[in-house]
Design a protein around this nucleic acid. Structure first.
Lengths: 195, 195
DNA sequence: TCTTGATGATACAGACCTGTCTCTTGATTG
DNA sequence: CAATCAAGAGACAGGTCTGTATCATCAAGA
């Protein structure tokens, strides 16, 4: 309970930490239960006592990623309170930096959806739900920023966001850093022109 | 002996047709050799006589997709000879329409790269080579269109292109059709304005 | 007719994956 | 000390996957 520094984390957390890192870096289908077991130093039964199945573990990984993503979003926008236009630009600038990070491997939700095509897969449903949430938050910001056509700007920005995730290290393209921020600024300024 | 008269549908072609459809629709890792065999009505040994391995079949699928993509690109740009600016816009308008097609399932190369993370995988190398080729063609068009900063415009457009592929049916987002064309037009006009 | 080559059908080997079961260890608590 | 319970270790079952080997079929041509 008291989470002392020297103490080992509970099995469930070690499993989830390891699974998250491996799923993100190597892909969900490419990482087997046995690998997660070995890397987290946990018995197989400890995994299946904490998670009903691999699918369940994947869902836990995505749910935790959603929480982390929301925290990142809030952190960035909180730096420009009451200024949605600058908030939007700041999100894309931050995204451009994240793309250049050595650990960047694309969007975990987009990747999960690409790997898990079955519409009935609960992890896929989570990934789609996350994208809808992002869309809603972008739309609200576009409205708050006074865009002439918030739907259009929101759609354009989400295209750009997905493109930034796809074109990063995952595809070994050149530095997307500058292009992300500049494209977002061009679209935002174009859509919020004074009239 | 060598006289390759075109027989109606050699086994090799039936296999490649079936594999391409299944790989694209359901994913590469999700489709097994046995499924391809059953769906194309071919013996397993006929597959392995024509393709050294599943990896080899995946490469053949991607290589054929590259040819088809290049043909599509040429078809669209040929409608506006000598007008690179309109050519670029036409490419994104066409892309917006393709996204709404019922069979659209994202970019086959991006998906392949997402599924096959091993840097040594030859199919992954093909996917990355394709993206570089697209980048080069876009860059040449940006130069020809007289963009102030061709590198920047090229980067922005490729971000947008990847975003359009990712945000289509694969992620169940709203109609990207209009957003794709309008965002491209905004970026292109913005980059070629002062001249 | 006999040969030859391509293809279909099927069994099988070996590897890997998920998920279950049993046995043991070690820490906490009465 | 004794009881209890979470967790480690590892065997195992049942399935799927890739790739190989064997045998049967069928058509074309000398």
């Amino acid at each position: 309970m008291d989470g002392v520094e020297g103490e080992r984390k509970p099995a469930r957390e070690r499993i989830l930490d390891t699974a998250a890192e491996l799923f993100y870096r190597e892909g969900i289908r490419a990482v087997g239960i046995d690998t997660i077991i070995a890397r987290s130093g946990v018995a197989k039964m400890s995994l299946y006592r904490n998670f009903a199945s691999k699918d369940d573990l994947v869902c836990a990984y995505l749910e935790r990623s959603m929480v982390q993503h929301a925290a990142w979003w809030d952190r960035v926008t909180a730096r420009h309170p009451g200024d949605p236009r600058t908030q939007m630009k700041a999100l894309f600038t931050a995204l451009g930096h994240w793309i250049d990070h050595p650990k960047f491997q694309g969007c975990p939700f987009t990747t999960a959806a690409a790997e898990l095509r079955d519409p009935a897969n609960p992890a896929r449903a989570l990934a789609l739900a996350h994208k809808r949430m992002v869309r809603d938050r972008l739309h609200a910001m576009a409205v708050a920023a006074g865009a002439d056509d918030p739907d259009r700007l929101c759609g354009q920005l989400q295209l750009l966001m997905e493109g930034a995730y796809a074109a990063g290290r995952a595809l070994d393209l050149g530095p997307g850093n500058e292009a992300v921020a500049s494209a977002a600024a061009a679209l935002i300024d174009g859509a919020c022109a004074e009239k």
